[in-house]
Each structure stands twice: as structure tokens, then as C-alpha cells.
Computed example of a mutant assay.
Amino acid sequence: MIPYGKQDISQADIDAVLEVLQSDFLTQGPKVPEFEAMVAGHVGAKYALAANSATSALHLACLALELGEGDWLWTTPITFVASANCGLYCGAKVDFVDIDPQTYNLCPKQLAEKLEQAKQESRLPKVLVAVHLCGQPCDMEAIHKLSLQYGFSIIEDASHAIGGKYKGEFIGNCRYSDITVFSFHPVKIVTTAEGGMALTNSDKLASRMNLLRSHGITRAQSLMTREPDGPWYYQQVDLGFNYRMTELQAALGVSQMDRLNDFVARRHELARRYDQLLADLPVTTPWQHADSYSGLHLYVIRLQREKITTTRRQVFVSLREQGIGVNVHYIPVHTQPYYQAMGFKVEAFPEAMAYYREAISLPMFQGLTDNQQDQVVATLKLALAGSEN
């Protein structure tokens, strides 16, 4: 089976993890700060806070922005459920903004219209989660301008996008957002097995997330309510969580970051080959905005349904049966049973639904060989053979 995504582990990665296993620290040692500094330095952010998952990092980001009961979090319906669930964890309500039909990201025009209506109804969002789907950044400048006009905070869910750029600058520098979140899951561009990271340029937000990721406990006297009893003393000053990253994960991340630029460059080579190889097939290949340099976590095609007689399901099953591990990213969040129970209508976001009915993610990972890619395309041709009108 050729998977849709796969980690790339080198001997250097293995050696880095083994070194930690033989050290004095398996957690709360020097590797996590090293990894944080490495990522922050790479993207140009002031602070980076590693967590045990991107989901945890999203939760911390929402808490730091003081999202709570009675507040609204808005995001895109075409994302993994964590982008929306992080608002529910805080007791907030969640709503969605339909996608741009070319980038598949949250549409700024739809956002502007929805914000104006929400202003009249006194239900403006407190937080917007802008998801960089497939690694291509949202139109962050337009979204940021709307945030200044309507007063909401911005989290960039850049789980797909480390190594990508927006307007020539690395995604993660938080120029147009309060907090950016990366994911280091095994299928992502770089991996720490499981893991995530929140980046920010705000002293206040960084301090808040740092406190909450480790039980709300501090040893900083400036945060304590009284003089410490001695050098052993700590205080729990808030209700936090155990969202820490281990030294093993961080060591793997440090090693992986050395190859980040090469990883993304290879993904772009593969995307260009896909574009050429698929040019004559009844599929729509990904469109890239001129302002973006995608991390290319995913390569999503859309079936041109008016030109084929087979269904998306038939094409998908045929590919899987032939050893091509395609996937679909994503099932619209508002169609999930948990969200349906909140009253969301399936067709409330028509662009998202049109995308969902046509989308298939082809294998995309830096270790994918040209021969494997040729096999993917040949198998896709067979799956579509005889289906053209």
C-alpha cells in the first residue's frame, strides 16, 4: 500500500532519540526548549510553546485568548474536528464560514458578509480559527483587516503548513494573527510522533499558555500569592492541564527540522509532477494563490463529476483495492452527528459540500518516489477508464 502520508525517519532521527533515552531527562529537560527555539527562530516568532498535540495547542490558544461561555468561535467546515472542538472545550459556541472555491480555505468575502450580519445580531465571534488547508495559507491580510474592524482574535491553524510561506514570509511568524499552531503528527511535514506547538509574539499570551500547559503550576515568585516556603515551593494558581511535550518527541523534532526545507522542496517537486501527469484527466488539480508557498501537506484533486460516470466512492474504492492509500480531507465538520445535534443544516455551506463530494487526497509525502507517483496516476487512470462522457 502506498499511503497518502508517511513520516520520513533517518538514522540521525533515531540517534537523536536514543541519545535522549540514555540521558538524565526523558521529560522536562533541555530538548523541548531547544526545539521551541529552533521553530521560533525558523519562522520568525518571538515565542514557541511545544505541546503533546496540536489539539492541545489549539485548546491552550483559546484559553489564553480568554474564550469562554457565551463567546463564539468561528472556523471553516473543511478541517479536522479539532479546529472547532477547541472552542467547545472552553464552553464557547461554534459556527462556520464557507470556503473559497479555489483555495478551499475559509473565504474572506463570505467572512465579511457573515460578520456584518452577526454585528447586527450581536453575535460576533471572539476568536476565528483560520485553517491553512493542505498547507496553503489563508488570505491572512484580508482576515486581519476584518479582525481590526470587528474586534476578534485570530488563531492560525497551520497544522498542515510548517515550512510554507505567505507573502514571502514563513507561516508562523504571527504577523496577521495572535497565535499560530503547528502539528507534528506522523503524516505531517515534520514529526515528533505526536506533538504540536503554539507560536505567538505576545508576552502575555505566551506566559498564559506556558502556565496552562503544565497544570497551572508555577515556581515563578512573581505569580505566587505569598512568599515561598523554600526552594522546593510551587503554587497552582490556575486550573491547567498536562499538555507537555516529552524530551523524546522534542529530540526527534530538532532532528527533523534540519531537513524541513528539503522536505517541502520535494513536496513541490511531486506537486509539479502531479500537475503534469494529471493534466489530461477529468480532475481538477490544486490551485495555488500567488501570495502563497504551500507546505503541501496534502495534494487534493476534485473529480469533474460532469465528465465521468463513476462515483467518487467507486473511484476511491478502486484505488484502495489497488494499493493506493487515498483519503478524503475532510468530511465537513458541520455534518458530523455531534454538530448536527446542534442544529447545523448539511447544505448551510454549499461550497464546502461541493468540495466534499468531489475531493480525493492522493499520496503526498517527501519519501514518495517518482515510480510510486507514476503508479498512483496509472491506477487513477484505470479507475476513471471508461467513465468519461
Rank of each mutant, 00 (worst) to 15 (best):
T192V: 05
L319H: 06
F96T: 05
F365R: 09
A385I: 07
L88Q: 00
Q256R: 01
Q136I: 05
P282V: 15
F316I: 05
T335C: 12
V39K: 13
T379D: 15
V32I: 08
P137Q: 11
A251V: 02
T55G: 13
A161L: 07
K167A: 14
T285D: 04
A385V: 09
P101I: 00
Q11Y: 11
L106I: 13
F365G: 11
L319R: 05
A84V: 03
R273Y: 03
S10K: 11
Y299C: 08
Y104E: 08
L212G: 03
V81A: 11
M353R: 02
R213A: 01
N371E: 15
C90A: 13
R175I: 01
Q235I: 01
V81G: 03
G68D: 09
A16K: 00
P77A: 10
V127F: 06
A271K: 05
H334I: 07
H334D: 13
G367C: 11
F349L: 11
G367N: 11
N327F: 13
V237N: 05
E113S: 04
G68M: 07
V346K: 15
W74P: 06
R208E: 10
A265M: 12
I154K: 14
G164P: 06
Y150L: 10
S159F: 08
G70V: 13
F170C: 07
N201M: 09
G196T: 07
H334V: 03
A354L: 07
A158H: 12
M364G: 02
I143A: 07
L49H: 07
Q11G: 00
L260V: 00
P3I: 02
V300S: 02
K126I: 04
A385Q: 13
R320Q: 02
Y355K: 03
Q336S: 11
Q366R: 14
L60F: 06
F241L: 12
A92T: 07
L21G: 15
Q102S: 10
N105I: 12
V131N: 07
I78S: 08
P332N: 09
F80G: 02
A265N: 06
V190T: 06
L368N: 15
F263Y: 09
A158L: 13
H334R: 10
S56N: 05
R259A: 01
R266P: 05
E227L: 08
K167I: 04
E141A: 02
H144Y: 02
L380K: 15
K93G: 10
H42Q: 10
S294R: 08
D178K: 00
